[in-house]
Amino acid sequence: MKLTIYFDGQFYAGLVEIETSDCYYAYRHLFGKEPKNEEVLYFVNHELLGLIENKSGSATRSSEVKQRPINPKRLQRLAAKESQKTSLSTKAELALKQSYEEKKKKKQMNKREFMEQQKTHKRQLKIMKRKAKHKGR
C-alpha cells in the first residue's frame, strides 16, 4: 500500500495505490487546503479502510501493470534533479523573480555600452595626443 499526497493545481489530493497478487487498485481522496499531519493520520486510521472496502477505485489486472526495475544510478539522478528544483509558491514571487532577471540583463547591457564608450573615448584621446606630438606642440 502506498499513499502519495500531491498538489493538483487547486487542491491537495491523496493517491492510495494497493497492489495485490491479482489486482492493482488506485483510490483518490481530496484533502482541500494543505493537510496537516493530524488530518493525514486521521484519514489513514479512520477513512482509508472504508474507502478500500467500498472498492470505489479503479482496478486493473496485475498482468497489465508490469514495472521494470529502475536502475539505481538513474534513480539517484532523478532524486538529485528533483532536490535541485526550486519551487516558487506564488505568482507574486514568480513575477518578482522575472523583474529581477530583466533588471539584471538591462544593467549588464548598460555596463557593456558604458565600457565601449570608455574604450572609444580613450582611443580618441590617444589619437589626439599623438597628433599633438607630431605637430611639435
Rank of each mutant, 00 (worst) to 15 (best):
L15N: 08
H29M: 07
E38P: 12
R68L: 08
R61I: 09
L51N: 02
G50T: 13
R28K: 13
E64N: 09
P35T: 07
G50C: 09
P35E: 01
G32I: 00
A13F: 08
D22W: 03
L41C: 11
L15S: 03
E39M: 09
C23S: 12
L49E: 13
N71P: 00
Y24I: 11
N45H: 14
Y42N: 12
L48C: 01
S56F: 09
L51W: 07
G57H: 03
S63M: 07
E34Q: 10
K66C: 08
E53S: 11
H29L: 06
N71I: 04
R28H: 08
S21F: 11
E19S: 12
K33C: 08
N37V: 10
F31E: 01
T20S: 05
K66W: 02
E39T: 15
E64A: 10
K55C: 09
G32L: 01
L41M: 13
S62C: 11
E19G: 11
N45E: 15
G32R: 02
H46F: 11
L51C: 03
Q67N: 14
L30V: 15
I70P: 04
I70N: 04
L49W: 05
N45C: 15
K66Y: 02
E64S: 10
E38I: 05
F31P: 00
E19K: 15
S63T: 08
G57V: 01
G57T: 00
S21H: 12
G50K: 12
G32P: 02
E39L: 08
S62R: 11
I52H: 00
N54K: 15
N45V: 06
Y27P: 01
A13Q: 14
T20M: 06
R61V: 06
E47A: 13
E53R: 12
N54S: 13
S21L: 06
Y27G: 00
G57C: 01
N54T: 14
L30I: 14
S58G: 06
P69C: 07
L15D: 06
L48W: 02
V40T: 02
K33M: 06
E53D: 10
S21C: 07
N37C: 13
T60H: 15
R68I: 09
Y12M: 07
E38A: 15
Y12W: 05
P35Y: 02
Y25M: 04
C23F: 07
K66T: 14
K36S: 11
V16H: 02
K33R: 12
E17F: 15
N45P: 14
C23A: 09
A13C: 15
T20Q: 03
G14A: 03
T20K: 05
A59T: 10
P69L: 08
E64F: 14
H29V: 06
Y12V: 04
